[in-house]
């Protein structure tokens, strides 16, 4: 199951640069990024090619970061692609805590990443419903 890194950041200039600097120096490639703003602080969420190493680099440098399991679903990059996922989640009464998406190849495929309370169960449900899920390796080697 893929992992994202959540990083606590004070909301001030230079904070994002520090994180990306540390990762770039160690050859970590960022696949996707989101930032949630909460006034004086924000939460940065990252998908990277080596999450375990990246998280160690960040915590080793005094940053507050944790790994978290997420579900990554392959979506067809065309109108209605996301709707099918939404409908399935609704049917199974699955609540999304946080989500983001990114396009893999324009007009062909995209990835929808969701954060749910019970990711393992949700993976099984989605697989049974015929969705193509990205495993840890698939996601990092895109």
């Amino acid at each position: 199951m893929p992992h994202q890194i959540s990083v606590f950041m004070e909301n001030r200039p230079g904070k994002l640069e520090r994180v990306t600097d540390l990762l770039a120096d160690q050859g970590i490639n960022i696949r996707a990024i989101t930032i949630t703003d909460s006034g004086d602080f924000g939460i940065l969420k990252l998908l990277v090619n080596d999450p375990g190493k990246a998280c160690d680099i960040l915590t080793g440098n005094g940053l507050v970061a944790v790994l978290k399991e997420v579900v990554a679903i392959r979506v067809i990059d065309s109108p209605g692609g996301l709707r099918d996922i939404g409908a399935t989640l609704t049917r199974h009464r699955i609540n999304i805590d946080d989500a983001y998406g990114f396009v893999l190849r324009s007009g062909q495929s995209a990835v929808f990443v969701i954060q749910v309370i019970n990711p393992e169960e949700v993976e099984v449900i989605l697989k049974n419903e015929g969705f193509s899920l990205l495993g840890e390796k698939d996601l990092y080697q895109l």
């Binding site: 959540s6 606590f8 602080f41």
Partner: peptide, 13 residues
Amino acid sequence: IYGKMFHGEAREL
């Protein structure tokens, strides 16, 4: 904030 008590969500903070 104490690093070990952080679980990755803005909501909890």
